[in-house]
Structure formats: structure tokens, C-alpha cells
Write a protein that binds this DNA or RNA. Structure first.
Length: 873
RNA sequence: GGGCGGUUAGCUCAGUGGUUAGAGCACUACCCUUACAAGGUAGGGGCCGCAGGUUCAAAUCCUGCACCGCCUACCA
């Protein structure tokens, strides 16, 4: 074994073995209790980023833990076809060759997308494997697979027949660059510095009414001006007519409660085809609908002389012309929220359009119930409120997209105006009139319309497959807050609607990974830390360890650029400690080492580390059960490094009795190592597997791979006396080291020590080795001995030439002062009747004990001072 | 506007009412002691954002405030 751990050599090789051995494959004919996670399918266009790394590490921890705990643990992987994103990527590729999608046509374009998918679509899968994800790759799914497409069609048809899917003309979010409708969730709002324009609209009877708007170009589509019926300023104008500048349309002034008297001028222009509120008002008042834009964001013929202009060019021009006409009374700076396309960042246009919608209220009701009743659990729980709030206010879901890549809507229209035909199989004839002149709906479905079926479509729904029967519902969903509405809420609705059961019981929502200043990591900000780069340089284990160790339960994590160091150092520590133990096995030529069956006849250091080991098993289980991954991992870190390496392994070097070493020390070292490896394996799978393999030559290990080994159980091994004994030795050693450091005596320079209490030979040997002591003698006071008084007794250290003894006195005086303060506090607490009355007994007992301890400590310090004073006389 | 989260060591963060508030990194001193310098030993460093309150007891619970971040909403 090398002195430095080299993850690069190890990880790739090990992953291959895991995959080939089929450890991640779950057989349905040999089922134990199941534990199922379906992956949040990454986009085929995606690259692994820190968010993925965190998300998938957490899933892997859960799955590996459950797999070792004797569950049939299934993690279903897959990818998402990501309609708009993928279409954009492929379009850009084609454009490099000077080809547009419209030139080659729909069929050819889709072929191109499939080609692209075959080439690059599994990039992210490859990266997940690098991370160590133990998915069952035999069950990998893609949202455009035949079976999943079938599920989408089935879902569409069922909802359509139930009247939950309808086609309607409404204001939707339109992306003029992607030239498609978007759902409300796909729009990202950003506060932007814009302007509020105050425009005078000429009244037919003479004079003006002034309106305020942020989008003056939409005035070309105005069909009314609205005021609040209570507004005294405008009461007499209600029913009057306005002559709209430029288009010269005569439009009415109407009254509506919704108009805010306080805002702007109190009069609002109504553009029913380009604003959701105006749309509603227009419906109520039977106003005209005038669409003034083309799908690409240019003005259409209704815009008169402004037609063909881009919408923002048009805005500029309109403002100029209004100025010329003297109709622009003022411009105020104004901050408002502007919607952007979440795929291409283009400013969204609210746009009147005919689209397909899902009626959400009936689907939301059961999804609300399961959360309210606590059947669906959120970790951290606060997300339940967010989830419910969204569902209480849910609006209909616009599911049609005017793009080519995706699931095409299974609807045909007959030339003879028959009702739309909704069918799973492609049809040739109208079932109504027999006409063969049918036209299929051009649109495809929102990508999330396939994702919301994911927890059962991956198992073959609507076919009644064995997988579906066994694995649905799944157990835990691990995801980020960003897609709570997009995906989680909708999956719950779909699960309840189509399967009659929630798709998962636990929703664990982890934080967002940000840079060290709190910003989201994004390519455009240039603040991205690339996980793949870190895996290549320092190993997946380093990345996983550092990420999990830093990420508190449900909290966002701010990553400093050197965050991987903790994991890198720790894996190296594990590596070297294992190397040491292995070397000792080798030297003694030991084979088939078994763990101790009998823990009676062993010395206290062995007992101590085994007690500590038992304790860490229990702690780890508790942390994992509550999804407190960082707590679990940091406890393991501290146990392994500080208890095991710093203390026990060092003590293991003390023993000279070869039989005891062979029969007791080595088996204990091996047991602690192996059990620790198991506990660490879900977090850092590669290095733990590699060491497991290295030890198979020497230790009787239950399985050929740690991946399929048995998860440790605590045995309630405990003994207070051993713990006390160990603490005493620790205290003595630390004190000697401290004194030596203080007096600049090198650790390796052996000194003489004197101790008043009894010490057995083993204890003496341990102290000698770990504190650098030549000999330990019975305590007595002599001139050139430096004395420290411990709770356990007087400790003297022989030395020549103390450098500054007055500093020692000062230090003790300071310490006494501090302790006296604490002592006074506790004494007052104990004098307090309320405290005695109300505090639990054990707390009071604890406080009393503390007093004794503090008094003892103070006494010892005073003895030290007396000694120092006597010496310096 | 509403909601949620955060504010603890120089930095990134733990701390789920009960000792004298912790970790990693960074820092200081001494050590290449044959598992490990990606290491060892010892150490320095905190009005726990501010102001009140509840409690025998508050970093922890409550209220208000300040600042940072996020999510949401039809003030055009």
C-alpha cells in the first residue's frame, strides 16, 4: 500500500467490479423488505454540478445503508428528455452548420435530436457512476422510452375522459425566443429597474384621462380604460369614450373594483390579449380582444404602422412619438418584477393563446389531504407548509408546448369539424364520420407531464408489471427545494390519481449548494466549482465526505473553494491507519483473523475502544434515521480520527507480549477498523471497499464486498469503570505533554515522572510511550521536580532548567479566578429555592458533583502555586 | 405585500432548554517519533446580530428591530 492514498487508481476499478458483480441489481424473486428510491432524473443535456453531487450522494447513502441493513434496496436511475432545453441545444448545434430546424422539418429534426441523445445523453450517467452512485442500472429509464411514452398517453387520455384536461383560450406565458407556451412554474421573476410611463389618452368629448404603464407598446392592443367605481376623480368619466392614439380605436372607460385607486393615476389601460388581469376584466365586461404581437415577439398587423417591429423597438418608438404628440406627461423610475424564460432567459410575453390545460383543483385535493394527515412526510417539516400553500392556490396547468421534441399530444382533428379524437394508437379514420382527412395536434406536452408519472412509469405503468406491484409506492424522495412545485407536488397528485397511493412516504429536501458568498453557482457568474474536476483530482470520496460533512439538515450550503480538503485529509488518514494495521498483520504472519468472541480477559484500552465503537454504531444509526447525515458523518470522523487513531492505535504500539498482540490487540484493531469501514461505507464507498479488499487476505470477512456486508448493530457494551480508568491515563498523558511543551522539552526527550497514585505496569508503559517518559516513580517532593496536581493525584515531572516559573503561577491564578466564578455561580444556583424545587433531580445532582470537582481542581491549583512559591524561595 | 431561512472563532459551518459553546480550514510554538507532514503534540482566538421577555436555567423558546439570502403575489 502506498503512503498516500491515490483515489484515481482505485475508484474506476472498483466501480467496474461493483457493476459487473450485480450488487446494485434487485431480484424480484428473492425479495426481502423493500426500500425504493427513484432518482430525480437529470436532463440529458446536463453536466454533473454540485447540486447533483449533493442530491445523489444523499440518495446513495440511504440506499447503501439500507442495502447493508438487509433490505432489497432499489435505486432506479434515469434521465429526462427536457423538451425545451434539449431542443435548444440541438438547434444551436445545427445552427453551427447553418441549418435551422424549420429548414429540415419536424421529422428530420427529431431524428437529429435522437442522434444527439445517443451521443451525449448518457454523459451525466457516466458522471453519476464516477460519483459512486449505486443505482440499479439494469432498470435505467428515459422519459421518452416506449413504455414511458405509453404512460404519458394513457395519462392524457384518462384525464381527458375525466374532463380534467381541456383545450382553452387564455393568457399564457409565451417565450418569443423558444416560440412556445410555458407553465407558470417555468417563468422566473426578477426585480428589474424599469420605467413607469404616464400617458394621456384623449377623451372623445375633449380633454384627457391619464394612465400609467410599464409596457407602453401594449397600448396598441388596449380595448378599454378602467377606473375604480369609488374613485371620485373619475366618477363622471365612467361610460365616456377614449380615442386611442396611433390605432385610432374608440374604447370605453369602464368601472371595476379591481382597480387600485392609489396606484399611478388610478386609471388603468386594459389590454385583454396581453395581460392576465386585463383578460379577466375584459371577459367580465365583454370587451374586445386585440392581439398585437406575432409569436416571435414582433408586432403584428394590428399594430398599424408599428407592425414588424420588435416589441422593445416598438416601445422606444411609441415613447418617442407620444412625446412628440405631447401625450407623455412623465416617466418615473420603477422597480418591477419581470418574468423570464427559465430555459433561455428571454423576457416572457403574457399572450392570449389556445392551449391545453390540466384542471388542477380536483387533483390537488387528495394531495393536500395526505400532507395534512401526515401520511406524506417532509424533512425538514417546514416544507409541508410551502407545499400546501402552493396546492391551496394551485392554478390550471398549461401543458402544451409549441416545440417538436417531446411527447406529441395524442389528439386528432377531423376535417369535418367532428369532436377531437383522443386515442392512444395513431389513427387513420375519423371514428365519427369515417373521413380520412385527419390532422394530428402539432403540439407536444410539457416535460413535467411525463416527469410527474416517474415513480410508477419507471416500473411499466399502465401495464401491471411485477416491478410495479412490488416497488410502488417508493419510500423516500430526495430532492431540492427548487422543484417542489414543478415535480414533487405533481408526482403526489399523479400517484394518488393513477395509483391510488402516495408515490413516496418521505420527502427529504436538501439545501441549495451556493458559492462562499451565498450566490447560486452558475456558469455565467463564473463561480462554479466543478465536482467532476474534484473527483478527478481528489476522488469521489473526498467530494462526498466534504459535501456531506458541510451540509446541515435541510440547510443551504456555502462552499468555499477548498472545501474538499477535509475529505481528502480524512481519506488519507483512513488509508494510512489501515496500512499500519495491515503491516502488523503481515509482520506477524496472521491469517483468518476473527473478531473477539469473549471480551472478558482483555485490558482496559481494548475494552475502552470497543465501548466507543459500540457507541458510534448507535449514534450513526440514529443520525441516519433522522436524515442528519452531517451529524452522523462528523461523529464518525471524530471517532475514527481522535478515539481510534490518536489514542487506541498509539496504545496498540505499547504491547510487547506477542501472544496478547496476536490474540487480542490485532483482532481488536481489525474489528474496529472493519466496523468503522462499514459505517463509513455509505458515505465514502470507494476507499472503504478498497481497504476491505486489502484485508480479505488476513481477516475473516463475511462477504466478498463491503457493499453487500451486514450493517453493524450495537451490542450495548458498556463499562463505566473502564471509561474512568481510560480518562485518568489520558489526563496524565496530556498533562505531561503540556508541561513538556510549555518548557520546550521535545516530546521525544524522555523525562522522569513521579505519581502519587497507584499505576499498574500497562498504565506505566502507556504513559511512557505516549508522553515520552523514561521512568515513573513513586511521588515525592524534591527541588527540581515540577508538580501538577490532578484529580487523580500529584504528578511530578523531573526537569532541569525551568524557563519561566512565574508564568506558571500567573496561569494558575487566572485559572483559579475563572473556576471560582463558575463555582460561585453554581453555589448560587443551588441556594436558589426555585432551582431546587423545579429543576430535575439529576440536574441538581450534577451541579453538586460539579462543586466537588471544582473545589478539588481549585485546591490542586493552589497546591501547585504553593509548590512554585516554595521552589522560588 | 405575504412567507421561509440565516446572523456563533479570521473563513466555511455544527450546536434538537441543563457542565466552563464545538469542528474543519487558517494562525502560533515545537516535532520529518518507520501508518499518515494530506501528519503529530500543545496552544491562541467568541459581548453566540441588537433590544426586551418567558424560565430555577436561554446560543437554544417568545416578541420586536437590523442586516443578508431565498420563495411567493394579478399594484398596471
Amino acid at each position: 500500500m502506498e503512503t498516500k492514498y491515490n483515489p484515481k487508481e482505485v475508484e474506476e476499478k472498483i466501480y467496474k467490479i461493483w457493476e459487473e458483480s450485480g450488487y446494485f441489481y434487485v431480484k424480484t424473486n428473492d425479495m426481502k423488505e423493500k426500500y425504493v428510491i427513484v432518482i430525480p432524473p437529470p436532463n440529458i443535456t446536463g453536466f454533473l454540478h454540485m447540486g447533483h453531487a449533493l442530491n445523489n450522494t444523499i440518495q446513495d447513502i440511504l440506499i447503501r445503508w439500507k442495502r447493508m441493513s438487509n433490505f432489497s434496496a432499489l435505486w432506479v436511475p434515469g434521465t429526462d428528455h427536457a423538451g425545451i432545453a434539449t431542443q435548444n441545444v440541438v438547434e444551436k448545434e445545427l445552427l453551427k452548420k447553418g441549418i435551422t430546424r424549420k429548414q429540415i422539418g419536424r421529422e428530420k429534426f427529431i431524428e437529429e435530436v435522437w442522434k444527439w441523445k445517443e451521443k451525449y445523453g448518457s454523459r451525466i450517467i457516466y458522471q453519476l457512476k464516477k460519483l459512486g452512485a449505486s443505482c440499479d442500472w439494469t432498470r435505467i429509464r428515459f422519459t421518452m422510452d416506449q413504455t414511458l411514452s405509453n404512460a404519458v398517453k394513457e395519462c392524457f387520455i384518462r384525464l381527458y375522459k375525466k374532463g380534467l384536461i381541456y383545450k382553452g383560450k387564455k393568457i399564457i406565458n409565451w417565450c418569443p425566443r423558444c416560440e412556445t407556451a410555458l407553465s407558470d412554474e417555468e417563468v422566473e421573476y426578477m426585480d428589474e429597474q424599469s420605467q413607469l410611463f404616464y400617458i394621456k389618452y384623449p377623451l372623445l368629448k375633449g380633454g384627457y384621462i391619464e394612465v400609467a404603464t410599464t409596457r407602453p407598446e401594449t397600448m396598441l392592443g388596449d380595448t378599454a380604460v378602467a377606473v375604480n367605481p369609488e374613485d371620485k376623480r373619475y366618477k363622471n368619466l365612467i361610460g365616456e369614450k377614449v380615442k386611442l392614439p396611433f390605432v385610432e380605436r374608440i374604447i370605453p372607460i369602464i368601472a371595476d373594483q379591481k382597480v387600485d385607486i392609489e396606484f399611478g393615476t388610478g386609471a388603468v389601460k386594459i389590454t385583454p390579449s396581453h395581460d392576465p388581469n386585463d383578460f379577466e376584466i375584459a371577459q367580465k365586461h365583454n370587451l374586445e380582444f386585440v392581439l398585437i404581437m406575432n409569436e416571435d415577439g414582433t408586432m403584428n398587423e394590428n399594430a398599424g404602422k408599428f407592425s414588424k417591429l420588435d416589441r422593445f423597438e416598438c416601445r422606444k418608438l411609441i415613447v418617442e412619438e407620444l412625446k412628440k404628440l405631447g401625450l407623455l406627461s412623465k416617466i418615473e423610475p420603477y422597480i418591477n418584477r419581470v418574468g423570464h424564460c427559465y430555459r433561455c432567459d428571454t423576457i416572457i410575453e403574457p399572450y392570449l393563446s389556445t392551449q391545453w390545460f390540466v384542471k388542477m383543483k380536483p387533483l390537488a385535493e387528495p394531495a393536500i389531504k395526505v400532507a395534512e394527515q401526515g401520511k406524506l412526510k417532509f424533512y425538514p417539516e417546514r416544507w409541508k407548509k410551502v407545499y400546501l400553500y402552493w396546492l391551496y392556490n394551485v392554478k390550471d396547468w398549461c401543458i402544451s408546448r409549441q416545440i417538436w421534441w417531446g411527447h406529441r399530444i395524442p389528439v386528432w382533428y377531423c376535417k369535418n369539424n367532428c369532436p377531437p379524437i383522443v386515442e392512444k394508437e395513431d389513427i387513420k379514420k375519423c371514428p365519427n364520420c369515417g373521413s380520412e382527412e385527419l390532422k394530428r395536434d402539432e403540439d407536444v406536452l410539457d416535460t413535467w407531464f411525463s416527469s410527474w408519472l416517474w415513480p410508477f412509469s419507471v416500473f411499466g405503468w399502465p401495464e401491471k408489471t411485477k416491478d410495479l406491484e412490488i416497488f410502488y409506492p417508493t419510500d423516500t424522495l430526495v430532492t431540492a427545494q427548487e422543484i417542489l412545485f414543478f415535480w414533487v407536488a405533481r408526482m403526489v397528485m399523479a400517484g394518488l390519481e393513477f395509483m391510488g397511493e402516495i408515490p413516496f412516504e418521505n420527502v427529504y429536501i436538501h439545501g441549495t449548494v451556493r458559492d462562499s458568498t451565498g450566490k447560486k453557482m452558475s456558469k455565467s457568474l463564473g463561480n462554479v466549482i466543478d465536482p467532476v474536476e474534484i473527483i478527478d483530482k481528489y476522488g469521489a470520496d473526498s467530494l462526498r465526505f466534504s459535501l456531506i460533512s458541510l451540509t446541515a439538515f435541510g440547510q443551504d450550503v456555502f462552499l468555499p473553494p477548498d472545501f474538499y480538503i477535509k475529505g481528502r485529509n480524512f481519506t488519507n488518514k483512513i488509508w494510512n491507519s489501515a496500512r499500519y494495521i495491515l503491516k502488523r498483520c503481515e509482520e506477524l504472519n496472521l491469517k483468518n483473523i476473527s473478531f473477539l468472541k469473549n471480551r472478558e480477559d482483555i485490558e482496559f484500552p481494548e475494552k475502552w475502544i470497543l465501548i466507543k465503537l459500540d457507541e458510534i454504531v448507535e449514534k450513526t444509526n440514529k443520525s441516519l434515521e433522522k436524515f442528519y447525515f452531517n451529524e452522523g458523518l462528523n461523529n464518525l470522523y471524530s471517532f475514527y480520527w481522535h478515539d481510534f487513531c490518536d489514542w487506541y492505535i498509539e496504545i496498540s504500539k505499547v504491547y510487547k507480549d506477542v501472544d496478547y498482540i496476536k490474540n487480542i490487540v490485532i483482532p481488536v484493531l481489525c474489528e474496529v477498523l472493519i466496523v468503522s469501514l462499514k459505517l463509513l461505507h455509505p458515505f465514502i464507498p470507494f476507499i472503504t471497499e478498497q481497504i476491505w479488499q486489502n484485508f480479505r487476505k488476513y481477516v475473516n470477512l463475511e462477504s466478498e464486498s463491503i457493499t453487500i456486508s451486514k450493517w453493524p448493530q450495537s451490542t450495548n457494551y458498556y463499562d463505566q469503570e473502564t471509561l474512568n480508568k481510560f480518562e485518568r491515563i489520558k489526563d496524565i498523558i496530556i498533562t505531561i505533554r503540556d508541561v513538556k511543551t510549555r518548557f520546550k522539552i521535545p516530546i521525544e526527550q524522555n523525562v522522569e515522572c513521579f505519581f502519587s497514585d497507584e499505576l499498574n505496569q500497562l498504565e506505566k508503559d502507556i504513559i511512557k510511550k505516549l508522553a515520552g517518559v523514561k521512568e515513573i516513580k513513586k511521588f515525592y517532593i524534591e527541588k527540581d521536580i515540577f508538580v501538577r496536581h490532578l484529580v487523580w493525584g500529584g504528578l511530578g515531572i523531573s526537569f532541569s532548567g525551568i524557563i519561566d516559573i512565574s508564568k506558571e503561577k500567573e496561569k494558575r491564578l487566572k485559572e483559579i479566578e475563572k473556576l471560582k466564578k463558575i463555582l460561585l455561580n453554581i453555589e448560587n444556583r443551588l441556594k436558589n429555592e426555585e432551582f431546587i424545587k423545579k429543576a430535575p433531580c439529576e440536574v441538581i445532582e450534577k451541579e453538586k458533583k460539579k462543586i466537588v470537582e471544582l473545589e478539588e481542581k481549585i485546591k490542586n491549583l493552589q497546591k501547585d502555586i504553593e509548590f512554585i512559591e516554595r521552589r522560588s524561595e
